[in-house]
Amino acid sequence: MLTYLLIGAILLALGFAVHVLKWNMLIAYSNSKPKAKTNKTNSERFRKIIGIYAYFTGALFLLLAFLEYQGISVPQTPVVSFFVLLTMGVMYYAQKDSNDKN
């Protein structure tokens, strides 16, 4: 339960830092593109996608912590598998969306 709670809190904090505080240094995307190919619209859109993703996954982990607190055991393998697949999907979508706009 404590692990889920800690991960959820970290993800919510990261989502807030990227989405609201605009800390681009937390996103590898902002450092991997040449300045000529980077524009304000793409970075803001990518930052929004990553922020919302972090909010969503953070809320899911807090939900899992709540379920564990209530005595409902949640196996970690499906949770980690879902998290990895969701991360890959969001990164593919964000990168594809970003490339289409250039």
Rank of each mutant, 00 (worst) to 15 (best):
M91C: 10
K33Y: 06
A59C: 10
N39E: 07
E68A: 13
L6G: 06
I50Y: 09
I49G: 02
K37D: 14
I52F: 14
F66S: 12
I27V: 06
V90Y: 07
A65C: 07
N31Y: 05
F16V: 13
N102M: 04
N102R: 03
T41F: 11
D97L: 04
E68V: 07
S81R: 03
K37F: 12
M25W: 11
L60M: 15
S30R: 11
L63K: 03
Y4P: 02
G15V: 01
I27K: 01
T38V: 05
W23V: 04
T41E: 13
I72T: 13
L60S: 09
F56S: 12
S30V: 03
L86D: 07
S73W: 05
S30A: 14
A17M: 13
K101L: 11
A28M: 09
Q70T: 15
F16L: 12
L86C: 08
P78E: 03
I7P: 00
F56A: 14
F83I: 07
Y29A: 06
Y93G: 08
H19L: 12
T38K: 09
T87D: 01
Y69Q: 14
T57H: 02
Y69W: 12
L85H: 04
A36C: 08
Y93N: 06
G89A: 09
M88V: 15
K37E: 15
W23K: 09
Y55D: 02
S32C: 11
L85K: 06
A54P: 00
I27A: 04
T41W: 04
M91D: 01
L62S: 02
A13E: 11
A28D: 11
T77I: 15
G8M: 00
S32K: 02
A54G: 02
L26V: 01
S30C: 02
M88A: 14
L85F: 13
A65L: 03
F82T: 13
N24W: 00
S73L: 12
I49L: 12
N102H: 04
R47C: 05
T41P: 01
D97R: 10
A59T: 08
R47Q: 11
W23T: 03
K48E: 13
G89W: 15
M1L: 06
I7E: 06
W23M: 13
Y93T: 05
A65Q: 01
V80A: 07
A9E: 06
N102W: 03
D100G: 02
K22S: 04
A28C: 03
A9Q: 01
I52G: 01
M91V: 12
P34G: 04
L85T: 04
